[in-house]
Design a protein around this nucleic acid. Structure first.
Lengths: 191, 191
DNA sequence: ACGCTCCTTTACCGATCGGTGTACTGTAGG
DNA sequence: CCTACAGTACACCGATCGGTAAAGGAGCGT
């Protein structure tokens, strides 16, 4: 039930190649011919599987969305306290960024596809909304007195760390430390 | 002496149109024909003035760079104290973002042009380096004890506020308030 | 009157873009 | 054995991409 389509082996290969290329070179800059070539598949097969480039872009973003959210949920589950759980999305970046040095795929997609009606644009904003809601939920669960403010602060730090990652500065460690201080200050003392 | 080329009226029109289109629709998505049409100028004139699309992109980014840095310097000059001066780049966003709702043009350019050897990529990273250096300089001038850490924190907040601006949340106000707290805490008490 | 610079007009270039038509092949299931 | 399906091979489409050729008009300082 979780999968609407089992996705054929060729489809998976296409999605893998598209993922690499879109992320590393940009969505607009990568043509369908190149994706077909890199996945060792005919352009015809690509269109039989995905229908159009736009739909392939959507599939690309949704695949990343699933992987990222899974990682975050695992990090939350592994957190030792509600306070640490609030920091989970930031902590998850530690692992994620190792294989994703080109910043946030969703932010990049928004930069390339400004049209709000574009399906890929919708997916990207949906993903960010998910993160906002998650921060709010985690802050509330941790017993934070002003969860809205904290959630916004953490969102800014999260996105800031993500986007400055490309600038060869270790901003993530600084962001996490700062975030930890904010969470501790916002949650009434415990233990 | 400040201008290497006086820039003809047609050149200015082209640059204006290119600025609007590149920023609002994305660099890769906008073709030279469209720019020529929007600026009421022939494609030939465009190429006589700028030589190539890449060079026009560079000119576009450099023009924004100049306008932004000017605004920041004015905000610094208007600051009432060294502590407020450190916050100037954040404060400048208040004005800047009103006419620039699509996030940071340089970050967007980096997203669209991943090739580090691309001249536009170089301009964009140079701009970010300028901001890093500026934060460091301002933090030091304010007498901050650990200017490196503060500068990195402020950079993260700055970029975070910039990139989350598109998400219809007032993240800038939250970021500035948080940044002010950080600066006050980092600078030994005065007066 | 001169040439020079700026700009225009129109037409054109090869390459690539996203996307399709068609006919063929391998293979698994009934 | 036969059908159905997934995938291949390859040619093709109109549109658009960045960029150029050639010729000429308008203004201007000499």
């Amino acid at each position: 039930m979780s999968e609407t389509k089992p996705m054929s082996v060729a489809g998976q290969r296409i999605l893998d190649a598209a993922g690499d290329l879109f992320y590393s070179r940009g969505i607009t800059a990568v043509g369908v011919d190149l994706i077909a070539e890199h996945s060792g598949v005919t352009k015809r097969t690509l269109y039989n599987q995905f229908g159009s480039k736009d739909q392939l872009v959507v599939a690309y973003l949704e695949e990343r969305e699933q992987r990222w959210q899974l990682l975050v949920r695992e990090t939350i589950a592994a957190a030792e306290s509600p306070i640490e759980a609030v920091l989970a999305p930031l902590e998850a970046q530690r692992i994620w960024n190792q294989n994703n040095p080109r910043g946030c795929a969703f932010i990049n997609a928004l930069a390339e596809l400004p049209d709000p009606t574009h399906p890929a644009h919708v997916v990207a904003t949906k993903q960010k909304q998910w993160l906002i809601d998650l921060f709010l939920e985690l802050a509330t669960a941790a017993g934070c007195s002003a969860p809205d403010t904290l959630a916004t602060q953490l969102l800014v730090l999260h996105e800031g760390a993500l986007v400055t990652q490309q600038l060869s500065l270790d901003t993530l460690a600084v962001s996490i430390e700062l975030a930890r201080g904010l969470v501790r200050a916002a949650v009434p003392a415990q233990s």
